[in-house]
């Protein structure tokens, strides 16, 4: 078991994976999905996990969210083992998966409803979030009346409505066109930083990872192992982190991009 890599923080980690192995069992045999993964993530940190498709990135998020259990090793949130889905962790999936039979507002309060929270308060909070994301006039519309970018913002409101400390993002922009994707990345990064969420973004888009996260973890091909861990720093006038769109134009961006590109060993097949 390798020592967990910390992001250089002295505070106890918010999320910690210790020697995690995950194997899938099937009639054909066992498949190793993740091997000896140890990562520690500090509170408020924005970490991106990149790797090629099928390397177990999404599986990693399922482990942290508690909907999957590791075959070996442990997953800790706030120092306690994850026993199942918890209110501390919110999960944003690859697509919005809004329920077409519910209005926007009713979709946004789904999590609170399932968790048995005070539904009146949840509706208030959801209304606030949706209004802040520019969806105030669409509260009682149905999902099919909204564009892809708007729908993904509803999904963000649904995730944040239950006020989790940790937000897991599983390629949340992959279903969007490239312009919407970049614009929404800006919004989401800004929202998560302002609310001081610990964020873990899984993506295969190197540019997205470098521009949004302050730390990028590279996973190897299946079985996924931590291949390398990079701190992403941009020199700015006020020392604060630039917005993703601005980061793409920063002089450091290309250097990080090229390093990670080599790390990923991208081979175009066919």
């Amino acid at each position: 078991m390798s020592a967990p890599a910390t992001g250089g923080a002295a505070v106890p980690p918010k999320v910690e994976l210790l020697g995690v192995n995950l194997r899938y069992f099937g009639t054909e045999g066992e498949t190793e999905a993740l091997k000896d993964i140890s990562i520690a993530i500090a509170p408020g940190e924005f970490v991106a996990i990149i790797g090629q498709s099928g390397c177990g990135k999404s599986t990693l998020l399922s482990l942290i969210s508690g909907i999957l259990k590791p075959t070996e090793g442990s997953v800790l949130v706030d120092g306690k083992p994850v026993a199942g889905p918890s209110r501390k962790v919110g999960y944003m999936l690859q697509q919005d998966y809004l329920f077409e039979w519910r209005t926007i507002l009713d979709n946004a309060v789904l999590g609170a409803e399932i968790q048995g929270a005070d539904i009146r308060k949840a509706r208030e909070r959801a209304t606030q979030l949706l209004t802040r994301y520019g969806l105030g006039q669409f509260l009682h519309h149905l999902p099919r009346q909204l564009s892809g970018g708007m729908r993904q913002r509803v999904a963000l409101a649904r995730t944040l409505c239950t006020d989790p400390d940790v937000v897991l993002l599983d390629e949340p922009f992959s279903a969007l066109d490239s312009q919407t994707r970049i614009a929404l990345a800006d919004e989401v990064a800004e929202i998560l930083r302002r609310e001081r969420k610990t964020a873990i973004l899984v993506t295969h888009d190197i540019g997205e990872a470098v521009s949004m996260a302050e730390r990028v973890v590279v996973l190897s091909r299946r079985p996924g192992r931590v291949k390398s861990d990079h701190a992403i720093r941009f020199a700015t006038a006020n020392g604060s982190r630039p917005a993703p769109f601005a980061a793409r134009n920063a002089p450091e961006f290309n250097g990080y991009f090229n390093t990670l590109w080599r790390e990923l060993e991208v081979h175009v097949e066919g």
Binding site: I67, P85, R87, W101, I114
Partner: peptide, 29 residues
């Protein structure tokens, strides 16, 4: 029923009964 909708409900900690009444049944109208 879209398994991803079920997964979504699970990330919020939905019980099997909640998955049935909030996802599977309304989705099967």
């Amino acid at each position: 029923t879209d398994p991803n909708k079920v997964k979504l409900a699970q990330t919020f900690g939905a019980s099997k009964g909640q998955i049935l009444t909030k996802v599977v049944l309304p989705g099967s109208v």
